[in-house]
Design a protein around this nucleic acid. Sequence first.
DNA 1: TCTGGGGTCCTAGGACCC
DNA 2: TCTGGGGTCCTAGGACCC
Length: 438
Amino acid sequence: MLRALADCNNFFASCERALNPALQGVPIVVLSNNDGCVVARSAEAKVLGIPMGAPFFQVRRLCETHGVHVASSNFEVYGDFSNRVMEALAEHARDIEVYSIDEAFMGFPDLTDEQAFVLGHSIRNDVLARTGITVSIGLAPTQVLCKLANELSKKDPKTSGVYLMPTDVAKRLELLRSIPVDSLWGVGKGTASRLRAYGVITVADLAEIEPERIRSFAGVVGERLALEVRGVPCHGIVEESSPRQSILSSRSFGNPVTQRDNLAEALAHHAFRASEKLREDGLVAGTIVAFARTNRHREDQEQQDAEAVIRLDPPTHDGRRMAAAITQAMDAMWIPGFQWKRAGVYLADLSSSGVTQPGLPGLGPAEPVQRRKLMEVMDALNAEHGKDAVRLASTGLERIWKPKAERLTNLTVKNAPAEVVKPEGDSRVKRTRIRFHE
DNA sequence: TCTGGGGTCCTAGGACCC
DNA sequence: TCTGGGGTCCTAGGACCC
């Protein structure tokens, strides 16, 4: 089977440009939450030498000097673009696995090299025409090789955005000999240094070593990698997404929080946000962890973590119950005298809601009817009138803990076509696994 | 002054049991 | 000084990804 990885180029920056055609040719930078770091750069911004992940305050001058358009990230809008890209991709593939907000693996029946090229280009053209987003296509027999092919397509302008990994094994090995093993998907710093210690320097080295031997020093992860670069698929294209195992809602504060009440409000807010995601997926949680941290980057300040772990018995998806539990836990959690920079709520021990567990007396339906109804009504109102249209009083009125987002693209009728902001429903692409991050 | 927010999977080691 | 052997389950933390 032939596989492909389609990956949107400079995705968030491309979305901003698609929303505002006046940005054609203008360097664009998109900032992370709280306007903290650079998380996406248009090609022009890369040329200016703005590094990925740079704290914005370090590149602010550079941006001003060169007239860079700087945008706060707007994940709702990027999610809509993503949906439309994935729908277009799905029409071309036999199987599709939406891997992240801007990437999808696709499966095709076997094709000749010629056919693969033609297919790659027609996918690219179609997605561009329908969404305004440019994708790069890497074609190969395994997902790890697809990743590599995709990178090569982006690096080399001659490929015009479509790269097919050589099907001839000797040719492929020759190519892989020039690629360092740490550029592989799944090889980070730790694995790279372990591999180096055993003489595995290039991807070809990995392809030539006995997979069983790899296992002794790089574990099953290394073994799978070795097989994949040989062209033996270990990852299938997963169309059915498995249920989530954890949910996190957290943010940095626009300004450090020093008052207990403000931290409590922020945590109640995150608890409710997390509970919304839980209900969306039809799950209940058995454990909440509420946490707060001081600013790791301030070496002049004493650091502190605060954490409260709360068991929910029976498990729940009731945001009110969670917020109340956290409010109670504040006594144990609160440590005065620190400047809290970030806080959040983590949900674990997730299981399907409405399921009674056999053999466990007392574990009836997850929630009493009236509690469920209340959440349903709140979710419905917020879906219709926008996030936070109705919210828990415990999340506060002033909300001085809110993160910064000072450069949000103004979605007026003029620059936001209706179908961009509110795409057609009924996507046939399963997106339950999609995660809204870059 | 100012530094993101999600996730998954694997492993090692401890608790516990027979 | 010396003090079994094996199995399972759970958890914390590391590594990695986007």
